[in-house]
């Protein structure tokens, strides 16, 4: 029984790392009808920024001289997430704007290429970029009581993910800007016609999505205690899978999709003998099956092909 509980906990934690990047995919797809393939790399770049702030550049150390450790941690993470938001907006300008309204294949390829560029730039220019790095422990590591299953860090990761999703929920449903994003995702032309400044809203969407990605990258790196320049490729791909399984364009879908993919991976590893090597295969097969037989995902709306 304890085994099953601990595996469930593993799956939930894994789902937390997938969810925010999945939400990123859904958010941008909802707003612009495009898939930005470099999101995983952007998120990892954000984590690298946070690591640079706390190790190489020494910002964290100098901050914690003045402020208590948790607050300086929050400041560092916040700066890193803002950097990610800037980076993703830059991506929007550089590799998405030139292809607006053209064949989707062009933006698909350009965002994949942008992912490679980000990854390789980190590898080339971050000090010892191609080596794995130990991620600085900004989250407390201790256990809660004597129970080995629950550590402070896991609780905080779940809590941050939850808070982020709630904030996003509040923003999308309760603020004017959020409602504008929804309007654009439902019908771009009509939204423009009722006076929504489309460009402004898109940039805001990218900033918010980028911020979430930065947090996502930070949580992932903290959970694994490590960071490597090429982690972003698989992370982004899994995020896209999560978004598709949950329903591309649906924010809550990303949560459900993240849980599903994470549970499949963990349970194939844990309960099928010799299954470890096949856990990724199983996850991708699930995605292929979803696309073939339920392309709208679990929570997505069924779309009828327009003629």
């Amino acid at each position: 029984m304890e085994l099953i509980i601990s595996q469930i906990l593993n799956a939930v934690m894994l789902a937390c790392t997938y969810t925010l990047v999945g939400i990123g995919f859904s958010l941008f797809f909802g707003a612009m009808d495009i898939v930005v393939f470099c999101l995983g790399d952007v998120a990892i770049a954000g984590a690298f920024a946070i690591m640079a702030l706390s190790t190489v550049m020494g910002v964290y150390a100098s901050l914690s001289g003045i402020l208590p450790a948790p607050i300086s941690g929050i400041i560092v993470v916040f700066i890193g997430a803002c950097f990610t938001a800037g980076l993703v907006t830059l991506m929007y300008r550089a590799v998405i704007v030139p292809f607006e309204g053209k064949n989707i294949n062009a933006s698909l390829l350009s965002t994949i290429a942008a992912g490679i560029v980000i990854r390789e730039l980190i590898g080339l220019f971050y000090p010892e970029g191609r080596n794995p790095h130990a991620f600085p422990q900004l989250l407390p590591a201790g256990l809660i009581g004597d129970n080995v299953l629950l550590s402070w860090r896991n609780i905080i990761i779940i809590a941050i993910t939850f808070i982020m999703v709630m904030l996003l929920y509040w923003f999308v449903n309760r603020t004017k800007t959020g409602l504008s994003i929804q309007a654009i995702s439902q019908n771009k032309e009509a939204a423009i016609m009722v006076g929504i400044n489309w460009h402004r809203i898109i940039v805001i969407t990218f900033l918010i999505g980028g911020f979430l990605l930065g947090i996502g990258g930070f949580l992932t790196a903290s959970y694994f205690n490590s960071l490597r320049f090429d982690m972003g490729a698989m992370y982004g791909l899994k995020g896209f899978c999560v978004a598709v399984v949950g329903g591309l364009g649906s924010i809550y879908g990303a949560i459900v999709g993240g849980l599903l993919i994470a549970f499949v991976e963990v349970f194939v590893t844990a309960f099928i003998p010799g299954g470890t090597a096949y856990s990724s295969v199983a996850a991708f097969l699930i995605v292929v099956l979803f696309i073939l037989f339920k392309p709208e995902g679990i929570l997505g709306e069924k779309t009828v092909e327009k003629v």
Partner: peptide
Amino acid sequence: GSTDFRPILS
């Protein structure tokens, strides 16, 4: 390149 070994270790 995998990063999560907790299921195996559990």
